[in-house]
């Protein structure tokens, strides 16, 4: 399956984070590689899966439906990226929706 770059989902990312984050960097929880968000590998199907360019681990997942979006940033370390605290943004950890973002 072919992939795109993180910059291709800049619009979706600014919906979630409230600003452009394609030039922010994040670290892969699996292999430790640090990359710009714009350089991450993006796979689009029913949802959007963002993988590490170095080891292919899943870093972020997004599912958008109507005007709401579900977000899982579980594969990313130390990015400093914080989703907006808005009702249309739902944060998941390992498949569990934890609205309000209490870290499990």
């Amino acid at each position: 399956m072919i992939h795109l770059d993180g910059n291709s989902i800049g619009g979706l990312l600014s919906d979630v984070f409230g600003r452009d984050v394609t030039d922010a960097s994040g670290r892969c929880r699996e292999c430790g590689a640090e990359n710009f968000v714009g350089a991450l590998h993006v796979y689009r199907a029913a949802g959007v899966v963002v993988r590490c360019p170095s080891c292919s681990a899943v870093l972020m997942r997004f599912v958008a439906a109507r005007d709401e979006v579900w977000v899982d940033l579980g594969g990313l370390l130390g990015s400093g990226l914080e989703p907006l605290r808005e009702t249309r943004v739902h944060v998941m950890h390992g498949g569990e929706v934890v609205d309000g973002r209490a870290e499990p």
């Binding site: 984050v21 030039d23 714009g38």
Partner: peptide, 9 residues
């Protein structure tokens, strides 16, 4: 349309 988008490329 939405944009402009992107700060990387």
């Amino acid at each position: 349309l939405r944009g402009p988008i992107g700060g990387y490329f």
